[in-house]
Design a protein around this nucleic acid. Sequence first.
DNA 1: TGACAAAGTGTTTACTCTACACTAATTAAT
DNA 2: ATTAATTAGTGTAGAGTAAACACTTTGTCA
Lengths: 229, 229
Amino acid sequence: MLNSYSSEDKVLLSVDCIIFGFDNEGLKILLIKRDFEPERGKWSLMGGFLKKEESLNNAATRVLNHYTGLQNVYMEQLYAFSEVDRDPVDRTISVAYYALINIENHNTELIKNYDAEWFNISNMPKLIFDHDDMVAHAIRRLRYRTSTKPVGFELLPEKFTMRQLLELYEAILDKALDKRNFISKINSLDILVKLNEKDMLSSRKGSYLYMFDKEKYDAKSLNNFALNL
Amino acid sequence: MLNSYSSEDKVLLSVDCIIFGFDNEGLKILLIKRDFEPERGKWSLMGGFLKKEESLNNAATRVLNHYTGLQNVYMEQLYAFSEVDRDPVDRTISVAYYALINIENHNTELIKNYDAEWFNISNMPKLIFDHDDMVAHAIRRLRYRTSTKPVGFELLPEKFTMRQLLELYEAILDKALDKRNFISKINSLDILVKLNEKDMLSSRKGSYLYMFDKEKYDAKSLNNFALNL
DNA sequence: TGACAAAGTGTTTACTCTACACTAATTAAT
DNA sequence: ATTAATTAGTGTAGAGTAAACACTTTGTCA
């Protein structure tokens, strides 16, 4: 028989999800209004407890799916938050994850059921517990990640214009970018396909649509790039 | 009375520490020989369980102190490892931390008592469970961290030569660096003080000793720099 | 057909990074 | 005292990258 660790303390482990979305108003986070005490009615990240028979990644995926109905979403583990008094109800350690979703795909019904709402990151309410810290971590990580991996496309529709991509990066990095320099840097990554199709909504001339070419990117098998915007 | 989360699963949470040291042979990791089953006699990271009344940072600090006797050591949380079957004894989630210590300061007695040994990172034994993954994560994080924060000095004696610093960065990044370019990049950070004191051990001419000027660095209050070596 | 609105497109300049080799200082040996 | 040996210490030129910058094109709607 194996040894056991029976004399050690066990604790509650939860996951909390920072869910990013993007639309023409900017970079947004999906929050829910907490419907139980303490802090009932306050805004909160979406979270849930780890079950004994699942990994943290599974738990995060499950929680995200539960609230949004989405699957196959880009998620990344951020950090474990563990201050002793972080949750007044019980000793709980929470592992924060962030997710990038295409804001158009989310299930509005589900979100309404949970009293969820999108908030622009520059205009967020105060959140419960240490969730503000988690969000700050997530934004930092997302900024860094965009410079090393092609994660931006996760936040856009499958087909998007250069302008949308530019505005996305401006929202993530919170700074203005030069259009021509941006386009040439993106093109030098050589991971987009330009479609023979135009988006006619934003201008009379119409602007070409692009797609992220995942196969071309994977074929390069570079673990990460250095995109300095 | 507060609500409770009483229906939720509780789990064991541990911390595992990747302890880096540096000497003239290169970058090293401190490992212990596990003295209980399963995997008795195999090499392992130093770890311990989180107690209910401490944060993960405290637990990591406590574990490090327990094995090495050291305090006030640079530590950083890496990642939570949570595959369901990662520990065959019991369901345990482990949060990995890495620590940077001055190899000369460690308490040799303590380390002997625990059957601990330093291994060059290029010449490490296979470790138990998922500890090899943890080490790989730690090395990646350390490489990145050296480009944004002045962490290298944690691995050196208080006074060090430019050559030592160069060799440290070469060991961390696993690549040869040009001496003149390296020195000018380091100097441009403007965070070292050159002492009126030479190290006479490595050459007849003797080479100047430097110290990290923490006050000057803090005064700049830049959260991070970009050191591209 | 003219006004409008956004799309699309290159070049010059400044800066940063890289490659590269000799002299200086000191001690040990003869 | 001279020489040999060893590592320390130092600068520049060229290449490459990043930044700044403005006009023309296209199509629709009035």
